[in-house]
Amino acid sequence: MDPLPPSRPRRPGERALRDLGFPPRPELVPSSVARFPDGGTWRTELPSCEGPAVLDAVLAESERLAVPLHRISQGSGVWMLTDAEIGEMVAACEARGAELTLFLGPRGSWEQGGGGRAYVSSGPRARGRDQLAQCVEDAERATGLGVRSLLVADEGVLWTLHRMRAAGRLPADVTFKVSALVGPVNPASFSVWERLGADSLNVPSDLTVAQLAEIRAVSAAPIDFYVEAPDDLGGFVRIYDAAELVRCGAPIYLKFGLRNAPALYPVGRHLLPAAVESGRERVRRGRLVLDTLARLGADEGMSPIGARDPGPLRRFPDEPAPVMS
């Protein structure tokens, strides 16, 4: 039996407009009936948490402002952290029931082939066999240190890691998250990324609620969505849309990003004060999102803290590669 769709949240300002004689707003976008395995419709994510010092500040601020965090993600990459730093972050997140996600490996825009270009050829993707192998190295190292969620920006890397997971070369409970840098923008591409091994997928924050519903109609894979996007991802601020994002996009991770913030990648001690303060402000932005959901009567349905299972998803079959003579 299909689950019942969620109740419709109150739309901002609609009661006043109706009382002034405005015609009702047309209801055209269907509600999602998909759910996380725990029955929840939404979870939270705090992105760009670059290292233990930033993580400590974020966790303290999330406790102070009562902002629950299901997932905390990092963007500089596994290779920018020492083993001790990764271990410290794993332990801190485990103690709070938060999933730690680390970005994989070098990316095309960072290597020698990226110098002096007037265009971006491979961008965040892994450029050449060596960068593919380096991402694999990052994945093996991170999972060996206890990380169970990896952020991927290349479809070849994703398919390779999924095959390794299926073969037992990576832990069976490791999950793969598709980066916002390559997020799919239509139902077909979203479905392809899911079948390549993705367990949750960032989509661009300029997609309409109707476009999210189109994606949800073909896939139950969790959507990751910047409610506030950083400037290099468009700088969109969609706090008032959060209730509709949940209603039409569930299961969904609401990401608390930050526009008008300094660039941090790759982070280091020279950027630490900005990284810490940006992390604290992302938590405050999360509080704004949660308060808005509550005012609109749409704050029910959050997954319990500690939930990370994406549920059963569809995959391409793995076939042996042909032998090239």
Rank of each mutant, 00 (worst) to 15 (best):
L104A: 15
G116W: 02
L271T: 07
A198D: 02
D241M: 10
P52L: 09
L271G: 06
V78R: 15
D241P: 02
V147F: 01
K255G: 06
G105S: 13
T101V: 12
P312A: 13
R284F: 04
G97C: 03
T41A: 15
H270E: 11
I86H: 02
V267I: 06
D83R: 06
I86N: 02
Q211M: 13
S179A: 14
S189Q: 12
R127E: 07
A166T: 05
P3W: 08
D19W: 04
R18P: 02
F225T: 00
P47W: 06
R314W: 08
R35S: 11
S219F: 01
V289C: 08
G75H: 12
R117T: 00
T143M: 00
D199H: 15
A92L: 07
D173E: 06
T41H: 09
V147H: 00
D130K: 15
P26H: 13
R247D: 01
D232T: 04
V152E: 02
K255R: 15
R269W: 02
A198M: 07
A294Q: 14
E244T: 00
G268S: 15
P47E: 10
D291W: 05
R148G: 01
A167I: 04
L181D: 14
R314V: 08
F22G: 09
R314L: 14
S32E: 03
V182P: 00
M89K: 07
S179N: 05
E27T: 10
A275H: 04
R280A: 08
R64Y: 03
A84C: 06
A220C: 08
L151R: 12
R282N: 07
D241G: 09
G105K: 11
R64V: 03
A198R: 13
L28D: 11
P52D: 05
T101E: 08
G311L: 14
Q112F: 08
P222C: 13
V276F: 02
A153S: 15
G105L: 06
M164A: 14
M164V: 03
P222H: 14
A220R: 12
S73Y: 01
S303W: 03
F190G: 06
D19G: 08
Y253N: 11
S62D: 08
M324P: 00
E94L: 11
A275N: 05
T101A: 15
Q211T: 06
D231A: 14
L69A: 10
P317C: 13
S278C: 09
R125K: 12
R269V: 05
A133W: 10
A92S: 08
L69Y: 04
